[in-house]
Nucleic acid binder design. Structure first.
Length: 782
RNA sequence: GGGCGAUUAGCUCAGCUGGCUAGAGCAUCUCGUUUACACCGAGAGGGUCGUAGGUUCGAGUCCUUCAUCGCCCACCA
């Protein structure tokens, strides 16, 4: 009697989710998150060692809190890891954090501003140092959450993407690609934020509706005969264009019309005189021009409009830059406009055109403009030199990997999308004019300005440059790409005292480094870990970074190692708010994982992910469902509790030997004596199959169904009276209890990958009672 | 404009290679139980699987049309 009371005291009638944290500590202390320790354990226990199972876990951005999307990914990754560990594979889940250059720089800059500081005052080095500290602290917080969801990652191999060990490998890749001619420096149009004084990737911009103007301006032909013809055909002496940005006309280098536009056909090839600037520019034909839009004649400004830039490339037009990084007018323009802000210049130009009689009309319109995501300032497209990767040959190899099944994407609709992406891939701009990130390992002999001038003037020599600038060259004007800071430039003929090697100030696009994550974290091609754990088995990540990240990892992985970095790509959907909207700070509809852990426990949350977050589809947060899972977790606890409370201490030796006998039968396939055991075996095999196929929702549904509806409602209920009615220690009791115990243990094992906490908690209770050993996390299934 | 996907019970969604008398969770209703668990048990109601065609002995499942919705990419002079 007293014994029973003690047990009841030990096992409360509801599983307390707050004990999850102490269970995690037990695992950490066990050392089994490290694959070598598991391998050793398996060997010592006479188990067969299978080949390693590896996931290099997607590193979340180290600049904020984790959200339910992160914990979703981790749940799947951990389930795969735990399952494979229990199937005899030394398992490495390698964790880390991403420096997320542009996003973090924006977030941290905002924090600085709130404190009344800014990055320019701090300077590059101090900014970097402070930002590093900020990331380390954010990363630490994030790691707490990662542990809380139960992630069985090897923390001894934790990496930050700006770790010097990784930087070295990233630089090496750059260097090799540079030597292979896959990397080049080219002129390209970028989004410049005049406020933040930085280039922005497309992804860092938004569209916003703003009021604006639509100015109709006439460009007269240089030849009066053409003007006569135009007057007759078009109603004015010249060709009329329509623009929202008159100030950019100073940088026009052509007027384009659609080749099928009958109004303008005979003017193609003629020349017009660009008003105010007084430059002759040609009329060209390009299919990109929309006949319906405006007047059907498009002023082409390659330096300040993305579409015009492309047209310029096709037609080999000059690129004239008239706007600087701060949004002021500059370059070869009439003196009176220099230094003006673009709006100011626009007004001044409109006035002059009106006086010249070349302004037809101005419409007031509302239109969408591209703005900086961070400060909402309209961006200025400007042209500058950037670093590019010629990804076409890399994409072809990645395509081959998909076509030959070396990498498969789940769901397969996303695989089609990825194929389409690879087939239509464009050069990848990998440089950013930011501070937070890894500097591109390149030095300019004689300075960057000299190099770029020589690029702009391919016919010219260093001497020409010296003449034009009046400066003495301090280098060969060549690029030196090198793993370390170079001492010298072999091509420099001058004195070494005069040599100036200017380091590239641009940093790498974040994806260039995170794209190497699967092998950089394993020590690169020469690393011990690489030899053992590469290529990895699975890449599990969110669907929305398929092109940004997964595609890059495949290309860079194949380039660097000759092998595709992962056999399977598993994409989980986005976690959305209950009404289907995105969770965001501005909507204030986000739910923090910590809240959910507290209310329902990590297991309940995990089970919800497995059941509801299917690959390729979005998932709406439904607390009711998580709550339902909590009931199931508690059911497991109570079923276990029932069995433990109903056996007597004196029966344990007999139970142990009976359990061992059943286990032998299980292994030999001799289970004919018990329908329950046979069904459990079938069930186990089914779950193994589901887990192998990454069909988590079926596995989750199945374990619930089997445990609750079969094991609890039928098996336990049916034997209840038998157990209670028979004499303590009798064969009937021992047999019934042993079967229940065996089936319970087997169920705990197959459920463990999905719901690790409750299963380990019960396992530890069994261990205390002398009916189990060690940790469930390294027990072998089957 | 290009690409990918979705449309099945009140809600959120399963249903792999065609065999379903169409399932689950939650919600609803009825009854029961308070010495494993009310975070329980037994049971019930609820769907012509978006539309129109086609292939087939057989279609929620394959093909085509249309409609509606979502996501990604490009672009908007």
């Amino acid at each position: 009697m007293s014994e029973k009371q003690d047990k009841t005291k030990q096992m409360e009638s509801a599983f307390d989710a707050s004990t999850e944290e102490s269970l995690y500590k037990l695992w950490e202390e066990s050392g089994f998150f490290t694959p070598e320790n598991v391998e050793k354990y398996l060997k010592e226990n006479g188990n067969e060692i299978k080949k390693p199972f590896t996931i290099t876990l997607p590193p979340p951005n180290a600049n904020g809190q984790l959200h339910l999307g992160h914990t979703c990914g981790y749940s799947f990754q951990d389930a795969m890891g735990r399952f494979n560990r229990m199937m005899g594979h030394p398992t490495l889940l390698l964790p880390g954090k991403d420096h997320a250059s542009i996003q973090t720089e924006a977030v941290f800059s905002r924090i600085l501003e709130e404190q009344g500081e800014n990055k320019w005052d701090l300077g590059r080095d101090e900014f970097y140092k402070r930002c590093y500290e900020f990331c380390m602290s954010a990363a630490k917080n994030a790691q707490e959450q990662e542990k809380r969801i139960g992630l069985s990652a090897d923390w001894s191999r934790d990496f930050f993407t700006l770790d010097p060990r990784l930087n070295e490998i990233i630089n090496e890749t750059f260097f090799e690609m540079f030597k292979d001619g896959l990397i080049y420096r080219g002129k390209y149009i970028i989004n410049q934020c005049p406020h933040c004084r930085t280039a922005l990737a497309d992804i860092d911009t938004e569209r916003k509706e703003m009021p604006g103007i639509f100015a109709y301006i006439v460009y007269p032909f240089t030849d009066e005969k053409d003007n006569d013809l135009a007057e007759k055909k078009l109603g004015q002496r010249g060709i009329m264009i329509a623009t929202t940005r008159p100030e950019t006309m100073l940088a026009d280098t052509a007027v384009a019309v659609n080749p099928d536009d009958d109004r303008y056909k005979e003017f193609v090839g003629k020349k017009v005189m660009l008003p105010v600037a007084n430059r002759e520019i040609p009329i060209i034909a390009d299919e990109a021009v929309d006949i319906e839009n405006g007047t059907g004649a498009l002023k082409v400004t390659p330096a300040h409009s993305p579409i015009d830039f492309d047209i310029g490339l096709t037609h080999n037009l000059d690129v004239i830059n008239v706007i600087d990084e701060n949004g002021h007018m500059t370059g070869e323009i009439p003196e009176r406009f220099k230094g003006m802000e673009t709006i100011e210049c626009s007004k001044a130009l409109v006035k002059e055109l009106e006086e010249m009689g070349l302004l037809n009309k101005i419409e007031r319109i509302k239109h969408e403009v591209t703005v900086c995501e961070r400060c909402q300032t309209p961006i200025e497209p400007i042209v500058s030199y950037q670093w590019f990767v010629d990804v076409k040959p890399l994409a072809e190899k990645a395509l081959e990997a998909i076509r030959t099944g070396k990498t498969i994407v789940i769901p397969d609709g996303q695989q089609s999308a990825l194929i389409h992406f690879f087939e239509n891939i464009k050069p990848w701009c990998i440089s950013r004019q930011l501070w937070w990130g890894q500097r591109i390992p390149v030095w300019y002999s004689g300075g960057k300005k000299l190099y770029d001038w020589l690029q702009d003037n391919p016919e010219s020599t260093i001497e020409d440059w010296e003449e034009e600038t009046g400066d003495k060259a301090k280098g060969s004007g060549k690029i030196i790409a090198s793993l370390d800071k170079p001492e010298n430039d072999p091509e420099w003929k001058g004195s070494s005292m005069d040599l100036w090697l200017e380091e590239e100030s641009d940093i790498f696009d974040t994806w260039f480094s995170s794209g190497q994550w699967p092998f950089s974290t394993l020590g690169g091609r020469e690393g011990e870990d690489f030899k053992k754990y590469y290529p990895t088995q699975v890449m599990e990540t969110a669907r929305d970074i398929l092109f940004w990240w997964v595609a890059r990892m495949m290309m860079l992985g194949i380039y660097k190692t000759g092998e595709t970095p992962f056999a399977r790509v598993f994409l989980h959907g986005l976690i959305l708010a209950a009404d289907g909207s995105k969770m965001s700070k501005s909507r204030n509809n986000g739910v923090a994982p910590a809240e959910v852990f507290k209310k329902y426990g990590a297991d309940a949350l995990r089970l919800w992910y497995f059941t509801d977050s299917l690959p390729g589809s979005n998932t709406l947060l439904q607390e009711e469902k998580i709550k339902g899972n909590r009931f199931f977790i508690n059911k497991i606890w109570n079923a276990s509790r029932f069995i433990l409370l109903n056996l007597e201490e004196s029966e344990i030796p007999a139970l142990r030997s009976r359990l061992e006998a059943i286990d032998n039968g299980w292994k030999n396939g001799d289970l004919s004596a018990s329908e329950i055991l046979m069904k459990t075996k079938e069930h186990t095999e089914k779950i193994i199959e589901y887990m192998d196929q990454l069909r988590f929702h079926l596995a989750a549904e199945s374990i619930r169904e089997f445990f609750w509806k079969y094991f609890c409602d039928i098996c336990i209920e049916d034997t209840k009276n038998e157990i209670k009615g028979k004499e303590i220690g009798s064969d009937e009791r021992i047999e019934s209890l042993a079967i229940l115990l065996y089936v319970l243990k087997q169920n705990l094992k197959i459920m463990h990958p999905l719901i690790p906490y409750i299963t380990e908690a019960v396992w530890q209770e069994l261990t205390k009672a002398g009916l189990a050993e060690g940790f469930i996390m390294v027990q072998q299934i089957g």
